[in-house]
Design a protein around this nucleic acid. Sequence first.
DNA 1: TTAAACTTTCAAAAATTATTGAAAGTTTAT
DNA 2: ATAAACTTTCAATAATTTTTGAAAGTTTAA
Lengths: 167, 167
Amino acid sequence: MEYQEAKDKFISTWGSLGTLWGINKAMAQIQSLLFISTKPLSMEEIMEDLKISRGNTSMNLRQLMDWGIVTKELIPGERKEYFTTEKDVQELARHVAKERSRREIKPVIKILKDVSSIEDDGTAKTKELIKQTKALHDLAETADAMLTKIVSQEQNWLTKSLLKLIK
Amino acid sequence: MEYQEAKDKFISTWGSLGTLWGINKAMAQIQSLLFISTKPLSMEEIMEDLKISRGNTSMNLRQLMDWGIVTKELIPGERKEYFTTEKDVQELARHVAKERSRREIKPVIKILKDVSSIEDDGTAKTKELIKQTKALHDLAETADAMLTKIVSQEQNWLTKSLLKLIK
DNA sequence: TTAAACTTTCAAAAATTATTGAAAGTTTAT
DNA sequence: ATAAACTTTCAATAATTTTTGAAAGTTTAA
């Protein structure tokens, strides 16, 4: 396998993984491309490499910036905007974890809390609803606390802790 | 908030969360319904409660069984099939983690390994591709090892370990 | 101020994914 | 063997999501 084949394979794999996780294909592919690029890329270069339209590139770059994993790089003397992604996988994982917590997990925890706090009218079905949503609430809180912890730590906490845990 | 409202809220929240995580709406809603039900439900009851078609119900129940989180319950004397889901959240989390590892993470790890193993031709771009995919490979392996560990342990390992970790 | 270089927006089109429902299939009781 | 009770399959349809591309918007240089 030589360079181009390996590169394509990486980008398409990462792209379809993104799809599976609620991140769209173009967004995942742009991030992948930047992740293995040796230099910042312009919109022009991205659209050309991935064969996607200007509009699509623009919108997805914006989303990636909202996620905090892609940043604009202004090159002195250049009119165009250039883009780079976070290159450190730990930092990348931390950003993604933080965003997923904020956008998805936290809101769900709130609803689980509300639902599990309804008044117990003594019926079996109400008791079951309360019991089960409470259990889910506790699980979600624990998982989220772990994410928060990972996110708040310095460089190598994640790897170190996990290795310790697995041993 | 009374029972019906709380129930609807729970099912629709869980349903949309599922969508966000690559599990379809009907599948997530059926699982939710079973999760808070006090007794096994027939296909008839599920379709009626969630207002989805027979075909849809049948297909999604099958998928839930493939995931290992829903099982058929044969009630003596009854012709119909009844369904229940795993009621223990820990066990549920373990099943889901195991399946996601097998279906999504493991295959990606394999590709990352292949891509990061291409021959180094000495160019900067090849070096970067190798370096970055190797880093991603290591991260994915660590994360997957954690999942595997969670999956392979007895009842309360998850909660206990995580609490310890967070303290 | 104008024009060139560039980016963003958004309505329409395309692609993908989920859902339906009726026909085919299966199982059980008689 | 037949029929009733039930489940599965799958082609057609519907719903949702993504992508396009051209017009509108913005910034900079002269």
